[in-house]
Design a binder for these strands. Sequence first.
RNA 1: GGUGGCGUGCCCGAGUGGCUAAAGGGGGCAGACUGUAAAUCUGCUGGCAGACGCCUACGGUGGUUCGAAUCCAUCCGCCACCA
Length: 428
Amino acid sequence: MTFDSVLDHLTARGLLLQTSNADELRAHFATPGQRIYIGFDPTGNSIHVGHLLQVIVLSHLQKAGHVPIIVIGGATGMIGDPSGRSSERTLLTPEIIAENSEALRRQISPFIDFTGPNAAIMVDNLEWTGKFSFIGWLRDVGKHFTVNYMMQKESVRARLEDREQGISYTEFSYMLLQANDFLHLYDTYGCRVEGGGNDQWGNITAGIDLIRKKRGVEAYGMTCPLITTASGEKFGKSAGNAVWLDPEQTSPYQFYQYWIRSDDRDVEKYLKMFTFLPLDEIDAICRAHEQHPEKRDGQKRLAEEITRIVHGADGLAKARTATEIFFGKEIVGLTDKELQAIFADVPSHELPRATLETAPLCSGLLAEADVFKSKGEAKRMIQSGGLYLNNRRITSDAPITREHLATETTLVVRTGKANYHLIRFRQD
RNA sequence: GGUGGCGUGCCCGAGUGGCUAAAGGGGGCAGACUGUAAAUCUGCUGGCAGACGCCUACGGUGGUUCGAAUCCAUCCGCCACCA
């Protein structure tokens, strides 16, 4: 399958939801070397799979010969989006922003090329936004927007109608900052396209309008859909936590598992969006998957592809090894060293070896080791049949001795299908 | 500035003096069935003990009472209407 325009390519993969002025944008992208900008707020030291989609869109565009501009929101990240938060955003120091930017660069580098003829560019919007005085801002930017216009934006209107939430003046101004970023990038790099998630549409069009008013030039916006999972859970969350790209925060195993557990109904969509497999190959995978959904070949392929890109062949290999062990039988005959390697990802807890001499009840031990918050919780888990030691189900709250250890020093605790904890007993 | 209202467990939300560790729902966790999917069903969801029992908890503090989430005072926070 080949496409005339990169836009058709993105559409076929479900990565394009909305564009402004589609025909002109198509013509614009017909010439290679066009700049396209997407912003990221550096609120953490890692991006998560939710951000990944934007990165992939940029990647496709770069492969088509265009130049991605990644904007770190050093300025916008400071004022951020207070909705649904009880605590104020903390101001990010320049050091932290630098750190987060570096992390971002590292994490997107498997997707985005920072070298070569159409090397990606990375900039921090604090560079130009920080130079504004308040008066200067009102004159140069604020003057071009009526409050009426701003209030028509969906993001603002929703909050105005929501009596409970309200919207702060700060947040109300957010779209102006973003609009000004776009203008600045047009002036500096000749960038005429902004991308983002579809929730950014209002902010993007504000930028388009600003460029038209101030420079008399037509700029364009394009958005990708916001992902919803078939079962209605929030995409990119696992047990309430975001799935990060940073292996320290989400291990390659956990990352791999997130994709493995995808709903059948989402697999095709994800394969198209998150992998770079050719569309006819994806089609073949999905047809095979329909024949034998229980094999979960679609999920496996999906998880393999994404994990390989993000964590490398090495990370993928580890994830798969861990998967085999974790969903396997009783854990016996391993040495400390082997166990350590396999369970490198797993949260571990340390207790003095002397603890074992007193043969504590299982529930007490697990509470002590912080596997559970309280003994009661541990007991409940045992009662409901959800607790396993070394992958063997525990049916009663019995005393634990060194007989129970899987290896010289370690006890492997599992709750549910595959949630592991290690308890190490220090020699001392 | 005035008047009225509200603040309950992770969230929503009942509850107006003892029968309330607090209905119901959501979420979460676990189990069964399966395919590490979906749907469904079951159990659990403050702490200690786990049999009775004890402790902590209904915005904060202080009070009334044999007894308070429930009444009073005061403080804090939020909301609505009026100006």
